[in-house]
Computed example of a mutant assay.
Amino acid sequence: MDHLTTAPPRQGLIIFLNGTTSSGKSAIAAELLPILDEPYFHLPVDAFHALRSPVPVPPESLDLLLHRTWRGYHRAVAGMAAAGNHIVMDHVLSADWRLEDCLALFSPRDVVLVGVHCPLPELERRERLRGDRPPGLAARQLAQVHAHGVYDIECDTGTTDPAACARLIRDFLDDRPTPTAFERLRATAGAR
Protein backbone atom coordinates (compact mmCIF):
# COMPACT_ATOMS: atom_id res chain seq x y z
CA MET A 1 0.00 0.00 0.00
CA ASP A 2 1.26 3.46 -0.85
CA HIS A 3 2.49 5.23 2.30
CA LEU A 4 0.81 8.45 1.21
CA THR A 5 -2.63 6.89 1.32
CA THR A 6 -2.07 5.96 4.96
CA ALA A 7 -0.68 9.34 6.03
CA PRO A 8 -2.58 10.59 9.06
CA PRO A 9 -5.11 13.27 8.16
CA ARG A 10 -4.65 16.76 9.52
CA GLN A 11 -6.16 20.17 9.08
CA GLY A 12 -3.73 22.77 7.78
CA LEU A 13 -3.28 26.05 9.59
CA ILE A 14 -4.41 29.25 7.84
CA ILE A 15 -2.55 32.44 8.67
CA PHE A 16 -5.13 34.96 7.49
CA LEU A 17 -3.61 38.39 6.80
CA ASN A 18 -6.39 40.98 6.57
CA GLY A 19 -5.84 44.59 5.62
CA THR A 20 -6.51 47.17 2.96
CA THR A 21 -4.76 47.18 -0.35
CA SER A 22 -1.17 48.46 0.03
CA SER A 23 -1.14 47.73 3.78
CA GLY A 24 1.82 45.35 3.48
CA LYS A 25 0.19 41.93 3.58
CA SER A 26 2.22 40.48 0.69
CA ALA A 27 5.45 41.92 2.09
CA ILE A 28 4.73 40.26 5.45
CA ALA A 29 3.92 36.95 3.72
CA ALA A 30 7.21 37.09 1.79
CA GLU A 31 9.11 37.55 5.07
CA LEU A 32 7.03 34.96 6.92
CA LEU A 33 7.33 31.97 4.60
CA PRO A 34 11.09 31.43 5.03
CA ILE A 35 11.00 31.65 8.84
CA LEU A 36 8.13 29.23 9.52
CA ASP A 37 8.96 25.76 10.85
CA GLU A 38 6.95 23.91 8.18
CA PRO A 39 6.20 24.47 4.50
CA TYR A 40 3.37 26.95 3.85
CA PHE A 41 1.69 28.07 0.64
CA HIS A 42 1.18 31.79 0.06
CA LEU A 43 -2.23 32.16 -1.57
CA PRO A 44 -2.96 35.85 -2.14
CA VAL A 45 -6.31 36.83 -3.59
CA ASP A 46 -4.49 38.96 -6.16
CA ALA A 47 -3.01 35.77 -7.63
CA PHE A 48 -6.52 34.47 -8.30
CA HIS A 49 -7.51 37.69 -10.03
CA ALA A 50 -4.32 37.46 -12.12
CA LEU A 51 -5.26 33.97 -13.33
CA ARG A 52 -8.37 35.27 -15.10
CA SER A 53 -8.17 35.43 -18.88
CA PRO A 54 -7.89 38.92 -20.41
CA VAL A 55 -11.32 38.74 -22.05
CA PRO A 56 -13.08 42.11 -21.59
CA VAL A 57 -15.87 42.07 -19.02
CA PRO A 58 -18.90 44.30 -19.52
CA PRO A 59 -19.24 46.75 -16.62
CA GLU A 60 -22.65 45.34 -15.67
CA SER A 61 -21.07 41.86 -15.22
CA LEU A 62 -17.98 42.88 -13.30
CA ASP A 63 -19.45 42.70 -9.77
CA LEU A 64 -20.75 39.17 -10.36
CA LEU A 65 -17.42 38.06 -11.83
CA LEU A 66 -15.50 39.47 -8.85
CA HIS A 67 -17.94 37.90 -6.39
CA ARG A 68 -17.44 34.49 -8.02
CA THR A 69 -13.66 34.97 -7.96
CA TRP A 70 -13.65 35.74 -4.23
CA ARG A 71 -15.94 32.78 -3.47
CA GLY A 72 -13.70 30.49 -5.50
CA TYR A 73 -10.64 31.83 -3.71
CA HIS A 74 -12.18 31.07 -0.31
CA ARG A 75 -12.97 27.52 -1.41
CA ALA A 76 -9.49 26.97 -2.81
CA VAL A 77 -7.94 28.04 0.51
CA ALA A 78 -10.39 25.86 2.46
CA GLY A 79 -9.63 22.88 0.20
CA MET A 80 -5.87 23.26 0.53
CA ALA A 81 -6.15 23.49 4.32
CA ALA A 82 -8.57 20.52 4.47
CA ALA A 83 -5.96 18.47 2.59
CA GLY A 84 -3.48 19.26 5.37
CA ASN A 85 -1.57 22.12 3.77
CA HIS A 86 -0.59 25.19 5.77
CA ILE A 87 -1.59 28.47 4.12
CA VAL A 88 -0.68 32.13 4.38
CA MET A 89 -3.52 34.03 2.75
CA ASP A 90 -3.73 37.74 2.23
CA HIS A 91 -7.18 39.13 1.94
CA VAL A 92 -9.27 42.30 2.05
CA LEU A 93 -12.42 41.86 4.15
CA SER A 94 -14.02 44.93 2.60
CA ALA A 95 -17.48 43.36 2.39
CA ASP A 96 -19.40 41.58 5.18
CA TRP A 97 -20.19 38.54 3.04
CA ARG A 98 -16.47 37.76 2.58
CA LEU A 99 -15.93 37.24 6.30
CA GLU A 100 -19.21 35.33 6.61
CA ASP A 101 -18.17 33.03 3.75
CA CYS A 102 -14.76 32.35 5.33
CA LEU A 103 -16.34 31.72 8.74
CA ALA A 104 -18.60 29.10 7.15
CA LEU A 105 -15.78 27.39 5.24
CA PHE A 106 -12.67 27.42 7.44
CA SER A 107 -12.02 25.33 10.55
CA PRO A 108 -12.14 28.16 13.13
CA ARG A 109 -9.62 26.56 15.50
CA ASP A 110 -7.09 26.42 12.66
CA VAL A 111 -7.17 30.07 11.58
CA VAL A 112 -4.88 32.78 12.91
CA LEU A 113 -6.55 36.06 12.03
CA VAL A 114 -3.97 38.82 11.66
CA GLY A 115 -4.99 42.45 11.43
CA VAL A 116 -2.58 44.33 9.16
CA HIS A 117 -2.93 48.04 9.87
CA CYS A 118 -1.30 51.04 8.24
CA PRO A 119 -2.01 54.77 8.67
CA LEU A 120 -3.95 56.37 5.82
CA PRO A 121 -1.20 58.80 4.74
CA GLU A 122 1.20 55.88 4.32
CA LEU A 123 -1.42 53.82 2.45
CA GLU A 124 -1.96 56.72 0.06
CA ARG A 125 1.81 57.11 -0.44
CA ARG A 126 2.14 53.39 -1.23
CA GLU A 127 -0.77 53.50 -3.67
CA ARG A 128 0.88 56.36 -5.57
CA LEU A 129 4.18 54.46 -5.73
CA ARG A 130 2.51 51.24 -6.89
CA GLY A 131 0.43 52.90 -9.58
CA ASP A 132 -1.57 49.69 -10.14
CA ARG A 133 -4.53 50.51 -7.89
CA PRO A 134 -7.21 53.17 -8.28
CA PRO A 135 -6.30 56.21 -6.18
CA GLY A 136 -8.20 56.22 -2.90
CA LEU A 137 -8.97 52.48 -2.92
CA ALA A 138 -7.29 51.86 0.45
CA ALA A 139 -9.11 54.85 1.98
CA ARG A 140 -12.45 53.45 0.78
CA GLN A 141 -11.65 50.02 2.24
CA LEU A 142 -10.28 51.22 5.57
CA ALA A 143 -13.46 51.41 7.66
CA GLN A 144 -14.95 48.11 6.48
CA VAL A 145 -11.81 45.95 6.44
CA HIS A 146 -11.39 46.01 10.23
CA ALA A 147 -15.09 46.52 11.12
CA HIS A 148 -15.41 43.05 12.70
CA GLY A 149 -12.90 44.24 15.31
CA VAL A 150 -11.59 40.86 16.48
CA TYR A 151 -8.09 39.54 15.79
CA ASP A 152 -5.72 36.97 17.20
CA ILE A 153 -2.79 39.30 16.57
CA GLU A 154 -2.32 42.72 14.97
CA CYS A 155 0.58 44.60 13.43
CA ASP A 156 1.08 48.10 12.07
CA THR A 157 3.22 48.29 8.95
CA GLY A 158 3.41 52.06 9.28
CA THR A 159 5.63 51.67 12.36
CA THR A 160 6.96 48.11 12.02
CA ASP A 161 8.77 46.64 9.02
CA PRO A 162 7.48 43.46 7.34
CA ALA A 163 10.27 41.26 8.75
CA ALA A 164 9.45 42.31 12.33
CA CYS A 165 5.73 41.73 11.68
CA ALA A 166 6.55 38.27 10.32
CA ARG A 167 8.61 37.41 13.43
CA LEU A 168 5.75 38.60 15.65
CA ILE A 169 3.32 36.31 13.83
CA ARG A 170 5.73 33.35 13.85
CA ASP A 171 6.31 33.71 17.59
CA PHE A 172 2.57 33.92 18.22
CA LEU A 173 1.98 30.52 16.56
CA ASP A 174 3.64 28.58 19.38
CA ASP A 175 1.07 29.60 21.97
CA ARG A 176 -2.20 30.36 20.21
CA PRO A 177 -5.03 31.18 22.63
CA THR A 178 -8.44 29.59 22.71
CA PRO A 179 -10.96 30.62 21.62
CA THR A 180 -9.44 31.94 18.42
CA ALA A 181 -10.72 35.08 16.75
CA PHE A 182 -12.51 32.90 14.18
CA GLU A 183 -14.14 30.86 16.95
CA ARG A 184 -15.35 34.05 18.65
CA LEU A 185 -16.57 35.54 15.35
CA ARG A 186 -18.39 32.34 14.41
CA ALA A 187 -20.07 32.19 17.84
CA THR A 188 -21.17 35.82 17.46
CA ALA A 189 -22.49 35.16 13.95
CA GLY A 190 -24.40 32.11 15.18
CA ALA A 191 -26.00 34.12 17.98
CA ARG A 192 -27.67 36.49 15.50
Rank of each mutant, 00 (worst) to 15 (best):
residue 60 E to H: 14
residue 109 R to G: 02
residue 25 K to D: 00
residue 56 P to K: 04
residue 10 R to E: 08
residue 115 G to S: 05
residue 23 S to V: 02
residue 189 A to K: 04
residue 91 H to C: 03
residue 60 E to L: 10
residue 159 T to E: 01
residue 117 H to F: 15
residue 152 D to A: 10
residue 139 A to S: 13
residue 35 I to T: 01
residue 84 G to A: 05
residue 118 C to A: 03
residue 69 T to S: 03
residue 143 A to K: 09
residue 67 H to R: 14
residue 77 V to W: 08
residue 118 C to Q: 02
residue 80 M to I: 06
residue 4 L to I: 15
residue 153 I to D: 00
residue 168 L to V: 14
residue 191 A to E: 13
residue 99 L to S: 04
residue 98 R to P: 05
residue 79 G to A: 15
residue 43 L to C: 09
residue 118 C to W: 07
residue 141 Q to K: 10
residue 3 H to C: 11
residue 97 W to A: 00
residue 134 P to W: 03
residue 89 M to N: 04
residue 146 H to E: 04
residue 110 D to Y: 15
residue 18 N to G: 04
residue 107 S to T: 08
residue 151 Y to P: 00
residue 83 A to I: 08
residue 4 L to A: 12
residue 111 V to F: 08
residue 121 P to A: 00
residue 9 P to R: 15
residue 192 R to Y: 11
residue 11 Q to V: 09
residue 59 P to H: 03
residue 167 R to L: 12
residue 91 H to M: 07
residue 26 S to T: 08
residue 177 P to F: 05
residue 137 L to F: 04
residue 100 E to S: 01
residue 137 L to S: 05
residue 160 T to A: 02
residue 87 I to T: 04
residue 15 I to A: 00
residue 86 H to S: 12
residue 8 P to C: 09
residue 53 S to P: 13
residue 136 G to Y: 08
residue 68 R to P: 08
residue 35 I to P: 14
residue 181 A to F: 14
residue 152 D to S: 15
residue 77 V to N: 14
residue 170 R to I: 15
residue 114 V to L: 05
residue 83 A to Y: 06
residue 10 R to N: 11
residue 36 L to N: 04
residue 106 F to N: 01
residue 2 D to R: 11
residue 84 G to R: 09
residue 149 G to W: 12
residue 102 C to Y: 01
residue 160 T to I: 07
residue 139 A to L: 13
residue 53 S to M: 07
residue 35 I to Q: 07
residue 80 M to R: 06
residue 123 L to Y: 09
residue 55 V to T: 09
residue 114 V to I: 04
residue 164 A to E: 13
residue 151 Y to H: 12
residue 182 F to S: 02
residue 156 D to T: 00
residue 57 V to A: 02
residue 172 F to S: 06
residue 146 H to F: 14
residue 107 S to K: 12
residue 129 L to V: 13
residue 29 A to F: 06
residue 20 T to N: 05
residue 42 H to F: 09
residue 8 P to I: 09
residue 182 F to T: 08
residue 74 H to R: 14
residue 14 I to F: 04
residue 79 G to D: 10
residue 128 R to Q: 07
residue 36 L to M: 05
residue 109 R to C: 02
residue 95 A to L: 10
residue 111 V to M: 00
residue 10 R to H: 10
residue 51 L to I: 14
residue 132 D to F: 12
residue 91 H to L: 06
residue 89 M to K: 02
residue 138 A to P: 14
residue 38 E to L: 07
residue 152 D to P: 09
residue 68 R to G: 11
residue 53 S to E: 10
residue 180 T to P: 13
residue 55 V to H: 10
residue 65 L to I: 06
residue 163 A to S: 12
residue 94 S to E: 04
residue 35 I to K: 12
residue 51 L to Y: 15
residue 25 K to V: 00
residue 34 P to R: 05
residue 165 C to I: 05
residue 43 L to K: 12
residue 115 G to E: 01
residue 104 A to V: 13
residue 19 G to C: 08
residue 4 L to R: 14
residue 172 F to I: 02
residue 169 I to T: 02
residue 103 L to G: 06
residue 26 S to N: 03
residue 105 L to Q: 00
residue 162 P to E: 01
residue 135 P to R: 12
residue 112 V to P: 05
residue 148 H to L: 11
residue 104 A to W: 15
residue 118 C to Y: 07
residue 116 V to I: 04
residue 134 P to N: 02
residue 123 L to D: 03
residue 190 G to R: 08
residue 185 L to R: 09
residue 22 S to G: 14
residue 189 A to T: 03
residue 148 H to Y: 13
residue 22 S to T: 14
residue 179 P to C: 02
residue 5 T to D: 13
residue 46 D to A: 07
